[in-house]
Design a binder for these strands. Structure first.
Lengths: 248, 248
DNA sequence: CGACAACATGCAAGAACGTGCACAAACGAG
DNA sequence: CTCGTTTGTGCACGTTCTTGCATGTTGTCG
């Protein structure tokens, strides 16, 4: 049997059953476990499966989805959230877009202030469900599962009617030279609108976002008003733009 | 059985019943208590459950009102959900409005069907985040914290543009004489629009909803196409309206 | 307080794994 | 045809992962 035939057969078995066991495959094809492991490694590399101890599964279950990202670096995000919510004043209207850091910020918003929160991330609306003093406006439209946010024309249309005191901009690249950037065209469009409709631009970012550049430009670095980041990560370079730095 | 399969099975049991017992799980999977405890620790670390003495519960505590209702009668709601999702066909467009039963239904939707789900409940959009074959449309607008849904003029305006094969109507009163009713005027308005825009009207209700009447009328009982309820609760009276009954 | 169940922790056995190497078959160039 | 190269495979080795058990600790209930 040719190697590629075997790989194809494994893929079919994965599609049929959702999982395969390395032992079974070795016995079934009459090859060693090592060969099967090599096959699974190759299939995983091509994104056709996800290796687990004992075999492989279809790559369907939530890898890299919001839940995982949320628990990632949870302590840092909580500290970023506390520092960011300190910038909020009673009575303000906030745009908050999607992202796990922004979700942490939403949860940390002071419950005793009257705030209006406008968001295109359903998870953020849900997180604010037990804050009776907050007015929450959801921007609807087509929901992008991987981003956890509503994107597209409908969402943008709704945003153009709402002006805010502050926009808490979610995960993206921040660079002194190339400014603030987003990974995705659809994501970028709604973020640009939110920037245009807000007085202050606030970014809370983990260190890995600093100095990185994504394809779609949102704004110059000078447009940023407040930057909340971990201390030490070469943040001094941002002072030249009159950005208020909040190291944690 | 692969470790990850076991973790997944535990998560499903948690979703269905709202709780799991370490002993039962060990017996059921044929592994030691220690292994189950390790699994529960891992699930708790990922935020999928909350460990308690003897087992684990759904992570209810911080989200307050909505979450309490969610874990309440979780067992019955999971059975209602399974019976309701059996009515869904590949390629259909569904309206799903807010409510803890509807959230359970959304989670139980078959992942292998291409569905378009339109909802005014952010929690339902979030729950469907890991279903890549589903198209999700969020109806935005002013978010009502106590209902967990977007209500009001903006939401209604968006709904008037979307027609669906089926509307899965959430918690309200159902009575043979006085029809389907809602507790709240704002809630009632959006529900009426969703009813008007849908071919089939489906209601999945716990027994306490049957025979109760709320102030705001949504539709006559005869408008209901499918009624999914617990068995025995005097459901025969609904047969006169040509409603398809699905006792569980 | 005492009995007992559930728990955390450390440890050891076995399974699964990655890596490096050797061998054989297939292949192309001379 | 012969030689060197490439590719696929199996084996040996050390490593990592999972699991169950033994230990001592903590929590629950009468």
């Amino acid at each position: 049997m040719l190697t590629e035939e075997r790989l194809d057969a494994i893929r079919r078995m994965l599609d049929d059953h959702g999982k395969v066991l390395a032992n079974d495959l070795a016995a079934q094809f009459g090859v060693s476990d090592d060969t099967i492991r090599r096959d699974l490694r190759e299939l995983a590399r091509l994104g056709h499966c996800r290796r687990v101890y004992g075999g492989a599964l279809l790559p369907a279950p939530d890898i890299g989805t919001l839940a995982v990202r949320t628990s990632d670096q949870a302590d840092i995000k909580a500290r970023l959230a506390r520092a960011t919510t300190a910038l909020v004043r009673d009575g303000q209207t906030l745009y908050i877009d999607a992202g796990s850091t922004n979700l942490a910020i939403a949860k940390a918003l002071p419950k005793d202030m009257r705030l209006t929160v406008v968001t295109n991330a359903p998870a953020i609306a849900t997180a604010l469900s037990d804050n009776p003093k907050h007015t929450i406006i959801v921007l609807g439209g087509l929901y992008d599962q991987s981003k956890g946010a509503c994107l597209g024309a409908q969402t943008i249309r709704e945003a153009t009617n709402i002006f805010a005191d502050m926009f808490i901009l979610g995960a993206c690249g921040v660079d002194t030279e190339l400014g603030v950037t987003a990974l995705d065209a659809g994501e970028a469009e709604i973020k640009r609108v939110m920037i245009a409709q807000s007085s202050l631009l606030v970014i809370a970012a983990t260190t890995d976002k600093l100095g990185t550049v994504a394809p779609f430009k949102l704004a110059d670095a000078a447009r940023i008003d407040h930057l909340v980041v971990e201390d030490g990560a070469g943040i001094e370079a941002y002072r030249q733009f009159d950005i208020e730095l909040h190291p944690i």
